[in-house]
Nucleic acid binder design. Structure first.
Lengths: 196, 196
DNA sequence: AGCGTATATGAACAATTGTTCAGTTCAAGA
DNA sequence: TCTTGAACTGAACAATTGTTCATATACGCT
């Protein structure tokens, strides 16, 4: 049997990416087989290769899409005003992009280790661009005296890791509403950066 | 060839655990094969089974040892005095245990997902014990008005994830000395919890 | 109605996986 | 010196891995 009714490339393609995203997020790249992904999609393993040249590309494309999305959203964000307002805007945008949409389905950056050196390098560059934006905010705040951040690079890394930390514990079916979590992180980051 | 001079169980045993620890930390459980571990130890794969019944047990024993160590250290820590002093003591103990010793070689708790349900449950119980100690500190601080933490469970999860976040970016050969990083985290967590 | 092609099957592949085990080696005790 | 047994090898195993490909199907087009 092949080509069931209503089953086209436009349907299966996204299904493959969604399944891979969910499984990579949950079990990690090495812990997921192509057959698991195929089974999730409702297809045989061989069919996946109509949508990706190989497993590595599947991971890379998903991570690239993620990073591109993050940078894009950030560009659309209004990062003007006083440092406190800027950092709040950054935190909310970052949080919403990572947790919003497909709730909590987001391949952790830990999986970067599974990339080819060449692929890794390309993503690493995009990440630097993203973090550079945060660093600029922190630097401005430090200069104006609003923030206590003598080492802006260190503070940037820490803030990013704080924000991504939510993926480690948040469960969509948990007790605390996502909006409350977002507000909490806004408060935490603002205070963590604040001058004493 | 077998049994080289000076090569005993007392030597190889720890070597196996060390290699597994390092590799699991770096590549994740699923991304490491028994043959890789064996090669790191300088032994054939079959020999590993003199020291562990199987791969799953190897991971579980390491994680159990880790959790046990963390709880032990915490019990030895003086958690008296005002909340600010208590939280500082907690942060320093937590940080030193996770980052000290074998610098940054620490299996991330993400790897818990690779455990058998039974094994997972057992570790989860220990983790609750550990986090309960932090929650008590936060609760006391909230009650005294020193901390802004209306939801102590949420704050606990967030603080833990903040602290563990250091594993995501810290490199032993990096620019910032470990002691400075520790001090930075002490400051960040204290401020993040502080009443406004 | 029938052709062409996008979409999928399912079997096969070489490599690698965790694990077992009969056999080998060598240090220490008798 | 000889024996014993702990420590290890190396080959083997069944299962699973990523990937390929000849084949089959059924939809859209004419």
């Amino acid at each position: 049997m092949a080509r069931k009714t209503g089953s086209h490339s436009d349907i299966t393609g996204p299904k493959v990416r969604d399944a891979a995203m969910r499984l990579f997020t949950e079990h990690g790249y090495a812990g997921v087989s192509m057959r698991q992904i195929a089974s999730e999609v409702g297809v045989q393993a061989g069919a996946l290769y109509l949508y990706t040249p190989n497993k590595q590309s599947l991971l890379f494309d998903l991570l690239l899409e993620q990073m591109r999305g993050a940078v894009e959203r950030l560009k659309e964000t209004d990062l003007s005003g006083p440092p406190e307002k800027q950092i709040e805007a950054f935190v909310r945008t970052h949080f919403q992009f990572h947790m919003g949409g497909r709730q909590g389905i987001f391949i952790p950056y830990t999986e970067l280790r599974n990339l080819t050196p060449a692929n890794y390098k390309r993503l690493e560059e995009m990440r630097r661009i993203y973090e550079r934006e945060l660093e600029k905010i922190i630097q401005a705040g430090a200069q104006s005296g609003a923030f206590d951040a003598p080492d802006s690079k260190l503070s940037t890394l820490v803030v990013i890791s704080i924000l991504n930390g939510v993926l480690a514990w948040y469960r969509p079916d948990g007790r605390v509403p996502l909006q409350d979590v977002e507000d909490h992180y806004v408060s935490v980051v603002k205070k963590a950066l604040s001058a004493t």
